[in-house]
Amino acid sequence: MDKVDLRKEEAALSLNDGLVAQGATADLGIADAIARGYPPSVLYLRNDEVVETEVCAFNYFSTFSKDFPEAEAHVWLFDGAGVQVGYYRKDLGLNGQLQLKTSRVCPNVSGTVAVTLLPKGDAKIRSGKRVTTGYYAQYFSQQGAVALSHEREPVTATTFPLPAWAQTYLTKFIEHSGVIVVNSCLAADGVASGNARLVALNGAVLAEQRLPAIPPMGGRRLATLELFPEAKQLVGSAESFALEVSGENMASPFSYYQFANGKFSLHHF
């Protein structure tokens, strides 16, 4: 695993951004977090010349729990092929918060980001339950747009199906549009695969295409016209169209628009 030494990075972040990394203890493996009952939640990661991703979280344990007011945040970053390329950890005291520019940890990497907030102390998990994490990402376009997303599904250690989900797009932006597929399965055999369908508003299927396979924890951005080169002709004069995605081992997909001026907008289906 190609792993970034974040002790130096944290020191730099502390100096440059005022982020506190004091008291950081041992790294936590993502599989260990799942095994402990704290599966991290995934989002798309994009750091390139167009977009930078920031993850934001607040120590809500200090708001809602007298027993466990302190927490630790763990952030794992993967490239598009699912190779872990970064890890960041921060202790969050009372009202502690995290606003991490992930490009500082892994510049020029796009794929997935997974975040877990763990309460400090001897927290017991209810039988049969798991503790999910709430956080947000901000995608800053160099041209000034900001897309926001709350966290999506927790990472799983076992394979799972994705039922068909669809969302509408504006035809006038068809050449700027697409879908982002994120693999949220950690299992070795958890390759994400499935189909995309171009659908008219009345439900008529205009075209269907096999999605490229995505390794565990990988992610990929696919333009509508890359998937369906004939989409403009198929959609015709309709004001909107829909893309439908189904398969296995994928978190619910994200729709996106990216304009020629670099403004980027994404949101989950």
């Binding site: 009952g37 607040f58 809500y60 344990f61 708001t63 809602f64 729990s65 007298k66 027993d67 466990f68 907030l117 309460p119 927290a123 017991k124 998990i125 209810r126 339950k129 798991r130 503790v131 999910t132 994490t133 709430g134 947000y136 901000q138 000034g144 747009a145 900001v146 897309a147 926001l148 997303s149 709350h150 966290e151 907008s265």
Partner: peptide, 27 residues
């Protein structure tokens, strides 16, 4: 944008954070 609310850059609904603690036994 810092322009008296003329430009909306991004929007998202919030999530109820207390739900993330539902799996933890508290006293």
């Amino acid at each position: 944008s810092n322009d008296n609310r003329r430009t909306l850059l991004g929007i998202e609904h919030s999530r109820p954070a207390h739900m993330n603690l539902a799996g933890i036994v508290q006293h």
